[in-house]
């Protein structure tokens, strides 16, 4: 279970998140949608402490961090170990082969042997439809392939929850569809996922829970079909109207 309690974050005096509460149950897929500047990405990045919240609590599995009190590096790494993150721009390591991108983190973070890590990497790359890409360098792969490599890299560390930060926003719709397909499979296997996205089809059809954010807070949360069919908040209505008009 992932639980965020009363989370606040400001950038240079500008509040981005104001007292956000969110609970995500094990094995569910949650979509975070909303206009840009709503704080979706910041909320996601606070969950693995890429951003340090000003106040509030983050609980993932058995790990809990209170932003107000001091926490050790060990606690920070322990929390991050529970999460895997996929970024809009993939953020692969360009100086390493695809295989090493997936192998090195396993060796350094989980302490797996090289053989063990390579075995797991090969398995995951094959599942992503990239069995023959291990020896390539990331820049020789297409955007969709790079994103699937990034997903394999994160999955190799056996995270409890996967955080997706606009994983298809930098991709052509067609290529984005390949990535969404992989994410759908993951969801079907019961992976806990939190997805910041503008893909309304994915939010509606794959996600169990829809969270609508605006102005640093959650304005509406619930069943995606219901919210998209009959939004109760005027901000949700105007946002959905704008997105679905495109």
């Amino acid at each position: 279970m992932v639980r965020v309690r009363d989370l606040s974050k400001a950038f240079g005096g500008n509040p981005v998140l104001e007292g956000v509460d969110l609970t995500v149950l094990e094995g569910t897929v949650t979509a975070l949608i909303g206009p840009s500047g709503a704080g979706k990405s910041t909320l996601l990045r606070c969950m693995n402490l890429l951003e340090r919240p000003d106040a509030g609590e983050i609980e993932i599995g058995s790990h809990r961090i209170d932003a107000r009190s001091r926490f050790s590096k060990r606690q920070l790494y322990a929390l991050r170990r529970e999460t895997g993150m996929v970024f809009q721009h993939f953020n692969l390591f360009p100086h390493m082969s695809v295989m090493r991108n997936v192998v090195l983190p396993q060796q350094r973070i989980l302490g797996r042997s090289k053989a063990e890590a390579e075995h797991r990497a090969q398995e995951l790359l094959a599942r992503m439809g990239l069995a023959d890409k291990g020896g390539q360098y990331p820049n020789k792969c297409s955007g969709g392939q790079q994103q699937r490599i990034a997903i394999a890299r994160a999955l190799a560390l056996e995270p409890r929850v996967m955080l997706f930060d606009e994983p298809t926003s930098a991709l052509d719709p067609e290529v984005g569809a390949e990535v969404l397909e992989v994410m759908k499979e993951l969801a079907a296997e019961g992976m806990t996922m939190i997805v910041v996205t503008h893909e309304m089809g994915f939010a509606r059809n794959v996600c169990e829970d829809l969270v609508v954010m605006a102005d640093g807070g959650i304005i509406e949360q619930g069943d995606p079909q219901r919210i998209m069919g009959d939004p109760s908040h005027p901000r949700t209505r105007s946002f959905l109207h704008a997105v679905l008009q495109r």
């Binding site: 693995n48 890429l50 790494y77 991050r80 170990r81 999460t83 895997g84 993150m85 970024f87 721009h89 953020n91 692969l92 390591f93 360009p94 983190p105 973070i109 990034a150 890299r153 994160a154 560390l157």
Partner: peptide, 10 residues
Amino acid sequence: GEIEGAEALG
């Protein structure tokens, strides 16, 4: 982004 990628992995 690459530094964040590494940090996010833990």
